[in-house]
Design a protein around this nucleic acid. Structure first.
Lengths: 181, 181
DNA sequence: TACATATTGTTAAGTAATGAACAAATTCAT
DNA sequence: ATGAATTTGTTCATTACTTAACAATATGTA
């Protein structure tokens, strides 16, 4: 992969950080491109160099995180839930501004459903109803049960200022997942 | 004044921040240009675009702060010491990384004397030995007495993690100055 | 000492960001 | 609804930054 020019990386970082900050302060619809460029300390034109408009920017911001989460899932696919959860919660912690903003009431309404879809995708192959504890149960219902729990836990943890460290969260949620999958 | 291109401002900010951070971690002589460019996330060539070498960079960094302090002094020249001190200590506080690094034992040895010279320059017109409390005393001695105290107070405050807020420092030091000038 | 390695300072060609301008579309108050 | 003001999205010439290369010093080690 040809490494990106550091000017591009820095501009995009600044722009993404700016839009997140602004979203935590006011409605996305009330944010102008000028607001973003001011906050990012970047020329307004630079934003159009990378994004079509602010909606495209938000889409790409979300898509990048979903994608990054997919990479984390791949890298931990061999591990037990308790261990696999750790990189997960560490990622949530280091990007808490993103998650808290996106899950906030006035955040990006589309994020929650995209997040859910992503989780459905990741968990769907983990469910075995042919044997074991879930023998004979309904796959869709188990899947939705787990995904809902996961989103809820993440939302609670993030919006309450991450009251427990990632290690504890990984362990506790790991146990709960083992119990249900 | 034609406002500077924001790319220049950003590069120089990053470079100056980087060199300060590195100086707080190791000896100035052990810092390479490559270290600085890595830390600043800037191309090595960019540093040479703005500075002759790392010594020139350090010189300019110091000169900028001395100059900024002079501006602050000008803007407060009409005020009583107690009030004039506030912007001063606020400046010290918001630039504590600079001052703590420069006043550290392995910092920039030249800074202390430049700082002293600056203070001599600023205080020398404040001393009146023709009347009042200092009538008949020696001007040079009073001047050195005050400057030494000031440097000492600043050094103590900064290196001890600024244990009192700028307001308190401004007030207390203001009283001590009134008493001697 | 001699050697390898790291750092310096400079160059050149290519790329990204800038600021300013502009018409078009939108928002807002009257 | 009307006009004023703001915001949008695009363009263009200019400037700054980037990467990679290079020879020349400097540094460290056997």
């Amino acid at each position: 992969m040809p490494k990106v020019d550091r000017r591009i990386a820095k501009s995009q970082e600044a722009i993404k950080k700016a839009v997140l900050e602004l979203m935590s302060e006011k409605n996305f619809d009330d944010i102008t491109i000028q607001d973003i460029s001011d906050r990012a300390n970047v020329s307004r034109g630079t934003i159009y160099l990378h994004y079509l408009d602010k909606y495209d920017l938000l889409d790409k911001l979300i898509a990048e995180h979903i994608n990054e989460m997919r990479v984390i899932c791949e890298s931990t696919s061999e591990l037990e839930f308790i261990d696999a959860n750790l990189p997960w919660f560490e990622y949530l912690e280091s990007n808490h501004l993103f998650f808290s903003t996106m899950l906030a009431s006035k955040g990006a309404p589309s994020f929650r459903s995209q997040f859910r879809e992503f989780l459905v995708d990741e968990f769907k192959d983990e469910i075995d109803i042919t044997k074991g504890k879930n023998n004979g149960l309904n796959k869709d219902i188990i899947l939705q049960f787990i995904v809902t729990s996961y989103v809820g836990i993440v939302e609670w943890w993030i919006t309450n200022g991450m009251p427990y460290p990632p290690q504890i969260m990984a362990e506790q949620v790991g146990i709960l997942l083992e119990r249900n999958l």
